[in-house]
């Protein structure tokens, strides 16, 4: 350590890391600065430059007056849709996953492995394979084009993940604690409420963050099963950016993209550790 060659390679290492870091930040930086510029400045100037004239106008436009489809409503109603979708879908799928994980690990029953294998594979399927029959089902249930329909779909296809998370966590749960509680007289619900769940904070956080990020960012179901009243934010944003009519208001697009990014970005900044754990848990099975 401390030799000249070491120092050179150390400097080079930091140089490369910082360069790559800037490259990684570039898209979000571009989104940020250009959402605060007037349109002329983007057209005539440099995308990487800071605004000469700072303005919040694009944000206001993206939020409340931009044309989404046919209505100049801005992203506001769709932001609300996404919240109305995400909150129940996350809570329901997490609760179901917790119960499933508890049952699959703490009770011996025939077929438990098959159930788990089925749930596990369901995590990987391309959703294109279920789009057609699901569209029919939602139609028959009267849920087509509604936020409730999207809640249902995201819960159904989220159970695999949430069950996987809780099952793996509870499989490693100290067996002696469970046995001790049973000897102390705790039954099915009491064991879950008083012993397992209070000691599940990390996996609950991981699961909620994972589900929140996934469902907030979800696009395919939204594009397939919602209409202009029930679009989630991702679909509305895509409509805003890709609608071919009129002048391309890049600054408004960037502001809109930033608005859609904020919730998951905030969650990531506040609890990146749990987000990474979710990624890892989702990738290392069993």
């Amino acid at each position: 350590m401390g030799s000249g060659a070491d120092k050179v390679s150390r400097v080079a290492l930091y140089g490369i890391l910082i360069f790559l870091g800037l490259l990684f930040v570039l898209p979000i930086y571009v989104m940020g600065v250009n959402s605060l510029k007037p349109l002329d400045e983007i057209r005539g100037g440099n995308l990487m430059a800071l605004p000469m004239e700072w303005t919040l106008e694009p944000w206001a436009t993206a939020w409340s007056t931009a044309q989404i489809g046919v209505q100049p409503t801005g992203l506001k109603p769709y932001f609300l849709n996404s919240f109305l979708l995400v909150v129940p879908a996350v809570l329901i799928s997490t609760a179901i996953g917790a119960i499933n994980g508890y049952i699959l690990t703490q009770f011996k029953m025939r077929g438990a492995n098959i159930v788990f294998a089925m749930l596990l594979f369901s995590v990987f399927i391309p959703f294109q394979i279920v789009l057609i029959p699901m569209a029919r089902t939602l139609g028959m249930l009267g849920l087509a084009g509604t936020v409730s329909g999207l809640v249902f779909v995201n819960v159904v296809y989220g159970i695999g993940f949430t069950t996987l998370f809780f099952r793996n966590y509870y499989a490693a749960f100290p067996g002696e604690l469970v046995r001790s509680a049973r000897m102390d007289g705790a039954g099915f619900f009491r064991l879950f409420w008083r012993i397992l769940l209070p000691n599940s904070a990390p996996i609950v956080v991981v699961t909620i963050i994972w589900q929140f990020t996934n469902i907030w960012n979800e696009f395919l179901f939204g594009a397939s099963f919602s209409d202009y009243k029930s679009f989630p934010l991702t679909v509305a944003l895509n409509n805003l950016v890709n609608s071919s009519t009129g002048v391309k208001e890049y600054n408004v697009h960037f502001a809109g993209a930033f608005i859609a990014a904020i919730p998951t970005l905030v969650v990531y900044v506040l609890s990146g550790k749990y987000f990474v754990r979710g990624l890892m848990a989702g990738s290392v099975k069993g």
Partner: peptide, 21 residues
Amino acid sequence: LAPAQRNIAMVFQSYALYPNM
């Protein structure tokens, strides 16, 4: 009889103390 219905107490190797209590 289920464990809870027997009047038997057990001390475990890992002590099995409930960490949340």
